[in-house]
């Protein structure tokens, strides 16, 4: 029996890449990540977005302390 991995589990990669996944979900996702090529590729692809979003964030923090 091969259970189909629910599509929603792959979606956690975005929250994980941004560091906003809830602590209790992190381990479960990392277990999935270890064997999921798709999520590894997407984690890599999302990797530079936090840094880019920080450009906007630090600008908005300066405007609204």
């Amino acid at each position: 029996m091969f259970a189909e991995i629910p599509e929603s589990l792959h979606h956690d990669v975005a929250a994980y890449a941004l560091g906003v996944l809830d602590p209790e979900d992190i381990q479960g996702f990392e277990l999935h990540l270890a064997s999921c090529e798709r999520c590894k590729i997407e984690l890599d692809e999302f990797g530079e977005l936090p840094g880019l979003l920080d450009e906007v964030k630090s600008a908005s923090q300066r405007v609204r302390p």
């Binding site: 929603s8 979606h11 956690d12 975005a14 890449a17 999302f46 977005l49």
Partner: peptide, 9 residues
């Protein structure tokens, strides 16, 4: 939230 975030990213 997680799915929306995924498609948003």
């Amino acid at each position: 939230v997680k799915s929306r975030l995924y498609y948003a990213m």
